[in-house]
Design a protein around this nucleic acid. Structure first.
Lengths: 351, 351
DNA sequence: GTTTTATTTGTGCACGAGCACAATGTGGCT
DNA sequence: AGCCACATTGTGCTCGTGCACAAATAAAAC
């Protein structure tokens, strides 16, 4: 219906400015030498018409247009990342025909040095953009600064590092995620019941991550007016300690009827609920195999799904929107907090 | 890493067959005349190497490659469809540079004649594919048969018509969706509580749609071993009847503590729950404004979200995968049954 | 065998961008 | 003017496909 001019071609611009195509090309790319008179005339036209190169023609001409690097954990160390890798490959496959190529740099998520090693490689790889899952905070910030020097645009996903140099972050609103967890458990429990918040993680770097979820969880109750149940907290850094400490807390506080595990390690808790036939409701994160099994057996009531596949594919799409299509992209993109139960989880993990 | 040959070019094929590019072109497109000898030789090579044309070059050459028609309800009559339209526009915007154009044919979802009118238009529009929300069953089947005659591939979304001529359907597994509804309500209710199933719809054509949800809901309880609560049913075709009949049932069966509304009209029920301060849990479909308001006020506990935007964008992506990229696409694509509560619905409806 | 007609095959250009190379123009210096 | 250095601009080809048109070959008619 609206027949707005798609975009001008270099040839058309050249005719307007009464110069040759090559001169226009020189102004656009700032290479070679152009007389001030010609430069001004062409620049004026370019600004006025908002010239955007024809990606199709560009892609046909040069084989590869953009090379982007992905820096994220290797799923061999943590299966959580498997779907993220799949999500990236799916998008890349669909967009490879516009000359996009992606190199996966997979690091060991338990070793900072592995992250740094791959980061260094990326810096000298000649990329036009990077996608990072910045699980190591300070290392990621250092890498980000290096990227800035090379004016390499960076998009992050999964873990949020609040830094203005990040072009865009894709993830979940963790505070809201904790709040959702609280609301779900509250639906199952009665007034007077108590809650237990369990943090299970061997890695310290997740501290902030986890803190936000806890804040959201607590805020839900403090804001929900009046009803302020007893909420207990357990921090487990070594899973071997879990059994003794969890049983201890539950023994001391028999009114605990809901357990919120702030990480994907919720299956450790579910295992104990199963073994000791505990009368509590359990909620945790991520649809990894172990958790799915306990969803099915009924020992986990709800799983909050971060949808790493969608996160990764959204993130890379946005990066390419920026690189290839020069589109404006948001600084922050929150994806839905997806609630999975036994009856609906299937559709999330089958493609 | 894997440097597999992307695809052969016509020029390369021509050299292999020792003919000119044009002859290869003639075999590929089946136009003009080609000697049997040349035809056989070229055909043999084509089959062996699985030639796929370079879409980039094709797009550069011809401005518009594919024209697809979308036949769906106008959101002016039912806001539910607003997000579907947005979802389609988003995909088209991203893919317009590969020469895809989309015409929206929006019909009045309360008038079969409007559907037929637009369907007829599409048949003589010279399209290469159609995307349909087949809310009118028999009309849709008739249209499908016409499309088949023109070998126009059709993808459907939202409403499922089981017909082998449909290239692909994108939607929710309604049986599972009803089952999920049951499971959620069951989490809130106690043993001994009774359930009420309410169907509210002015249009008869949704009958099958709704029946599947009901089946799922009932199956959940009959399969969950032992516990078989009383489940009452209410069919409302005129919303004016709702108040009297709902209050009547609740009066007769005070043990009803959970109401499952199988359509997006759940806000009618929530309104009554609010007015009469009824002590029941309510679950229904779709994040339309009215329902969101009652989620916020606490009169609706859960909303199952069909995500029409995602349905539509997935559907059109698949159609274009088929048309443009000659990719194999599934006959059926179920999207997640998304569970929304007051705390997490926001991320679903903001983009 | 020659001309006419039908069949089959090949060449060249366009799409838009990018870049190598060639071709102008401008100034200084002898 | 003649010559060289350097600044500035223009031409022509490539990428792969599709199609108009021309050219070559084969078959039929005289």
């Amino acid at each position: 219906m609206d027949t707005k001019k798609t975009s001008y071609t270099i040839k058309e611009i050249a005719e307007m400015a009464q110069v040759s195509r090559a001169t226009v090309d020189r102004v656009i790319h700032g290479r070679g030498t152009v007389s001030k008179k010609a430069y001004d005339k062409i620049k004026y036209i370019l600004d006025k018409i908002d010239y955007k190169p024809n990606i199709v023609a560009q892609t046909l001409r040069k084989g590869e247009l953009f090379k982007v690097a992905v820096l994220m954990p290797d799923s061999d160390f943590d299966v959580y990342w498997k779907r993220a890798i799949d999500g990236i490959n799916k998008v890349v496959e669909e967009l490879s025909f516009i000359g996009v190529s992606v190199d996966l740099h997979l690091f060991n998520p338990f070793k900072e040095i592995s992250f740094n090693h791959h980061a260094k490689q990326i810096l000298k790889g000649g990329y036009s953009g990077v996608l990072v899952a910045p699980v190591f905070y300070s290392e990621a910030v250092a890498f980000l600064n290096e990227c800035k020097k090379l004016s390499l645009p960076m998009v992050t996903f999964n873990t949020h590092i609040k830094d203005d140099n990040v072009l865009c972050h894709v993830g979940q609103d963790l505070e809201k995620s904790g709040r959702t967890a609280a609301a779900l458990l509250a639906k199952l429990l009665k007034a007077g019941d108590e809650y237990l918040l369990v943090h299970i993680d061997e890695d310290i770097h997740n501290a902030k991550h986890i803190q936000e979820k806890e804040d959201g969880f607590l805020d839900y109750f403090s804001e929900s007016g009046g009803r302020n149940p007893n909420i207990h907290t357990l921090k487990i850094e070594d899973t071997k300690e879990l059994e003794k400490r969890l049983l201890g807390v539950l023994d001391d506080h028999p009114e605990i009827k809901g357990i919120f595990v702030s990480t994907s390690k919720v299956y450790y808790v579910a295992e104990l609920v199963h073994s000791y036939n505990l009368n509590v409701h359990v909620l945790g994160y991520d649809l990894i195999k172990e958790n799915v099994d306990f969803l099915n057996s009924g020992h986990i009531d709800f799983i909050i799904y971060q949808n790493p596949g969608l996160q990764a594919s959204t993130a890379i799409s946005l990066l390419l929107d920026h690189l290839a299509f020069k589109k404006e992209i948001p600084k922050l993109k929150y994806l839905p907090i997806e609630i999975a139960i036994k009856e609906n989880y299937m559709d999330y993990i089958t493609d």
